Computed example of a mutant assay.
Amino acid sequence: MTASTTGDVVAHYQRDGFVALPRLFDAARVVEIAERIEDAGARAAERMAPGDFVLEPGGKVRNLWRLETYDEYFRELGDDPRLLETMGALLGGEPVLAAVETFNKPALQGSAVPPHQDNAYFCQQPPDMLTVWVAIDATTATNGPVHYVRDSRAELLPHKGSGIPGNSMLLADPPSYDQSRVTVGLLEPGDAMVHHCQTVHWSEPNRTEQRRTGLLFVYRAAHTRTSKDLRAQYEAAAAAYAAQQAERG
């Protein structure tokens, strides 16, 4: 990526709260990554802690969390100097790989992700954190693409528990956004979208016969810190939802 291209990417990201990175990985690397994800998913129950993977009701893998702690391959992928250089420019500080994870939408059973902001989970101040969402399969208009709301990162909005495994938080009172502000991440394998941790986003279910796998790299700037107040809000929302469910029996 040239200096001029990097400048364009940074300007777009700062303006919209997200930016596309076409052809982040070539076809051969995408095939390799897909094989490693498939292997990780097949062995999740025997290799991963129960909280580090989520299955769809139909039994197929929805999420694999903290892959960088289970397989050096994924850590090395996330620590690629080319990626770190670009992420540092977007974060405005030294990038630190925080997580490598998957968001899978298996064919015919991939569940939705409700509208939310990632910093409701991350709880970082300042909110200099982002996610690189890499398409491993083609992401189409019908198999559950991510929707991003332009210029929605200014503040962290109130969230509440969702009860959805793998996406336990959602916006408590989602604003109504004009469709002109919404960009749908339609991607070819190897393409990526990068979004700020306070950009509002969501995705629909996958009811097609085409799977939709995404590999995510999460980075924070080295100067960020976990906010006790934000963490308390997250824990309170999760506890309130748990109590509500308990009352319903």
Rank of each mutant, 00 (worst) to 15 (best):
G17T: 14
G41I: 10
G144F: 05
Q14E: 05
T140F: 04
A3Y: 09
H116D: 08
S176W: 13
D16K: 13
L97I: 07
L130G: 12
V54F: 12
T139Y: 04
A28Q: 08
D79F: 13
R75D: 02
R15S: 10
F103M: 07
D71Q: 01
K160Q: 12
V134I: 05
G92E: 07
T199P: 01
W133E: 05
A221N: 05
T142L: 09
E35A: 15
Q198P: 08
A154F: 00
E32Y: 03
S176Q: 14
A27N: 09
T69I: 07
L156G: 04
F103T: 03
R248T: 15
G59H: 04
A27H: 12
H195G: 02
K160T: 14
N143P: 01
R212W: 09
Y177R: 06
V218P: 09
T226S: 12
D16S: 12
Y234K: 15
S162C: 00
D26Y: 01
P205G: 03
Y70K: 02
F103G: 01
P175M: 03
R211Q: 14
F74E: 00
E35T: 12
P205D: 11
P57I: 11
H201F: 08
F18P: 07
Y148T: 10
L77M: 02
G59V: 01
L186M: 07
A232R: 14
M129Y: 05
M193T: 10
H12F: 13
E56V: 05
A236Q: 14
A40G: 11
P57V: 14
L91F: 00
R75E: 08
A135K: 08
S111C: 07
A98W: 15
F74T: 03
T226V: 15
A221S: 04
I37A: 01
A232S: 06
L84T: 09
I164R: 09
L64K: 06
A138G: 04
D71C: 00
N206C: 06
T183R: 10
S162K: 03
D80C: 06
W202C: 12
P95N: 14
Y219K: 02
T142S: 13
E101P: 00
L157Q: 05
F18T: 02
F25I: 00
R36V: 06
A243R: 13
G17V: 05
E76I: 10
R29P: 13
Q210P: 00
D71L: 08
V132Q: 07
E209V: 11
L91M: 00
M193K: 03
A154Q: 11
S152I: 06
R47Y: 06
T208K: 04
E94A: 10
V218E: 12
L77W: 10
F122C: 04
V31C: 09
W133H: 01
V113K: 00
L187R: 05
K160F: 12
A89F: 10
E101T: 10
F18I: 00
L21Y: 03
L215H: 03
L90R: 02
D71S: 02
A236H: 08
Y148H: 13
R29K: 12
P126T: 04
V149S: 00
Y73P: 07
F53A: 04
G88K: 15
P22I: 06
R75I: 09
L77Y: 06
V184H: 04
S152Y: 09
